[in-house]
């Protein structure tokens, strides 16, 4: 319990620093909210713009603006998107669920298959299976995600017609209940496979290395000496310990996963945060982009926190330094 509190306290400065960084990035961007508003309206007199600036507090000195910004973030007020005519926080919340769905499916697939492939490779060290898996990992590690997505669309959507090309569900069919779940799952397949491939390579390599490292430990020799069967050593003793680094890595990679989802969602028109970021980019809606950035950074901090806590309960040797 003390560990959890300590770890929470450690996260606070990082969160604060990220919010401040976000504020300065907003300052760096050319033009402020008033310029955007004036641009949308077509014309605005300098007097009117000055009045608007005073109303939004944009004429105050920077530290005051920063304090106001911090207060707003704490209240989860991330500003206003003039393109969508909606508060940024509302827009982001609406798109959060599809992204979480995609990410959970991806992590499950990538970690699951990564562990399996790494295990197979480590057990048949230097056989054709090991080589084939290593080559597969090497190639997927070097492939750009968006290209894999497009190629999967060409093969499985356009030619074989197994899966839909884009979107999350077929609105025209008005599915309800289980039919709707099945429809969404059907749409989920290609984006998940695409996003998983890169991380699959990562987890496969990690799992293989981790298995090999654990197999050389003293406790394996001890187990062998007291007559434990090889299978039992592999699956009960080594596997359990080898899983630990894979769990940590899954946590560390969440940030990269969010970045990957921007690309995958824009390829498959998956209506999540990544797609929203892509749209924001296109309409030059920086306020929205910054909001998404802030939220994803906070998400990474939160996930790392949770993984660290799980990890410390799995492995009591871990301590906060």
């Amino acid at each position: 319990m003390r560990y959890v509190v300590k770890r929470l306290l450690q996260a606070i400065p990082i969160v604060l620093a990220i919010v401040v960084l976000n504020f300065f990035l907003l300052q760096l961007a050319e033009g402020d909210a008033v310029d955007v508003l004036a641009g949308e309206a077509g014309s605005a007199t300098p007097e009117y713009m000055a009045e608007l600036r005073a109303k939004f507090g944009l004429d105050k000195p920077l530290p005051v603006q920063l304090a106001v910004y911090l207060k707003n973030v704490v209240m989860f007020d991330l500003g206003y998107s003039f393109r969508h005519d909606m508060p940024v926080s509302q827009l982001i919340l609406d798109r959060l669920v599809p992204t979480l769905l995609l990410m959970v499916a991806t992590i499950t697939l990538a970690v699951g298959f990564g562990i399996l492939l790494g295990l197979v490779a480590a057990m048949g060290l230097n056989t054709w299976r090991d080589t084939a898996i290593s080559i597969f990992a090497l190639i997927t590690y070097a492939t750009p995600l968006f290209w894999v997505g497009l190629m999967l669309i060409v093969v499985f959507s356009l030619n074989l017609r197994w899966f839909p090309t884009s979107g999350m569900e077929n609105f025209a069919m008005f599915y309800e209940g289980w039919d709707r779940v099945k429809d969404i799952a059907h749409h989920l397949v290609l984006p998940t496979v695409t996003l998983s491939l890169f991380y699959l390579a990562l987890y496969t390599r990690l799992m293989r290395a981790s298995m090999l490292e654990q197999a050389g430990q003293d406790y394996v020799t001890t187990a062998r000496a007291k007559g434990v069967t090889e299978n039992r050593i592999m699956f009960v003793h080594v596997l359990r310990n080898a899983l630990l680094p894979v769990v940590t890595m899954a946590g560390v990679q969440v940030g990269a996963l969010i970045g990957g989802s921007v690309i995958v969602e824009s390829v498959f028109a998956w209506p999540g945060l990544g797609m929203l970021a892509f749209e924001a980019l296109f309409s030059r809606d920086l306020n929205l982009l910054l909001g998404i950035f802030l939220l994803s950074a906070l998400l990474v901090v939160a996930v790392n926190l949770v993984v660290d806590i799980i990890y410390s309960s799995l492995d009591p040797r871990i301590e906060v330094n």
Binding site: I14, V262, A297, N304
Partner: peptide
Amino acid sequence: TIPSFIFAI
């Protein structure tokens, strides 16, 4: 900690 690709964007 910051998601690097979104930061780059």
